[in-house]
């Protein structure tokens, strides 16, 4: 028996070493594939977002917005359609910069892109193109079953401080679609969990059909159960119709806001 131990141990060690190396490479490559699957480099993307926020305890509020996005230049423009009190408000992102427009006061406000969108758990940065491969580096990966999905679970660390969360865990199915995200603070506290159970294909790329987000920082004990602020996002009527470049400007936002 002893004469087999060394070769077996060596082969296990070599396999493990090979696996780590392969996984290290594969995970970075996997992130690139994830980005490529949901990024529209060759066209504009527009869609209607319905965002329903349910406070811990039950009160709900709904925001409807139209989004126009140009991934090739990192721009987006968002116009609020509802509720009536916010109708005409707009968001314009150029690179890392975000402008908010208030049509009542005719004022543009320059602000951080990381903030919460309309005070929901959905963040302004969530409208951005997917950029996992540049903003994060994978530090480990495992295989895990998530409901009916077989997933690769990647633990990610941010490569820069412009992202909303310095640490993340993402569940990626074998078709390179992210199904679940856990966002963590630098100290490891779970900040937010997002689920994307289903996608819709537009052209040869994919867009989430719906998302559910739990904000772990906004909690309430309801009947002995800890409830989090829950935000449900529905993305409808995705379109690749070409848009003029002037759409992604402050003047355009000012012009179209009602």
């Amino acid at each position: 028996m002893n004469r087999y131990r060394l070769p077996i141990a060596l082969s296990i060690a070599l396999a493990a070493l090979g696996s780590v190396q392969a996984q290290g490479t594969d995970y970075s490559e996997l992130l690139k594939r994830v980005d490529a699957t949901v990024t529209f480099e060759g066209s504009d993307l527009s869609a209607e977002y319905t965002i329903v926020k349910r406070d811990p305890g039950g009160a709900t509020s709904t925001t409807v917005a139209t989004m126009f996005r140009r991934d090739a230049t990192g721009q987006f423009l968002i116009l609020i359609l509802a509720p009536a009190i916010d109708k005409g408000k707009g968001y314009l992102k150029e690179g890392d910069n975000l402008w908010l427009y208030d049509p009542v006061d005719r004022v543009f406000t320059f602000t951080s892109a990381k903030e919460r969108f309309q005070n929901s758990s959905f963040r302004n940065s969530d409208f951005n193109r997917s950029n996992f491969s540049k903003d994060y580096t994978p530090v480990s990966g495992t295989r895990e079953k998530l409901g009916k999905f077989e997933c690769t679970v990647l633990e990610l660390r941010a490569t820069n401080d412009t992202v909303s969360f310095p640490r993340m865990r993402i569940w990626v199915t074998d078709d390179y679609l992210v199904r679940k995200i856990e966002d963590y603070s630098l100290s490891g506290q779970l900040m937010r969990t997002s689920a994307i159970p289903s996608y819709q294909k537009v052209g040869d790329k994919w867009v989430a059909a719906g998302m559910v987000i739990l904000d772990h920082l906004k909690t309430k004990n309801v009947g002995g159960k800890v409830e989090y602020e829950r935000t449900t996002v529905t993305i409808a009527k995705p379109s690749l119709a070409a848009l003029p470049g002037s759409v992604y400007t402050k003047e355009y936002l000012e012009k179209v806001a009602r």
Partner: peptide
Amino acid sequence: LFNDPVDDTVS
């Protein structure tokens, strides 16, 4: 939500 999700669709 992942036990029986709506299938991915083509827009």
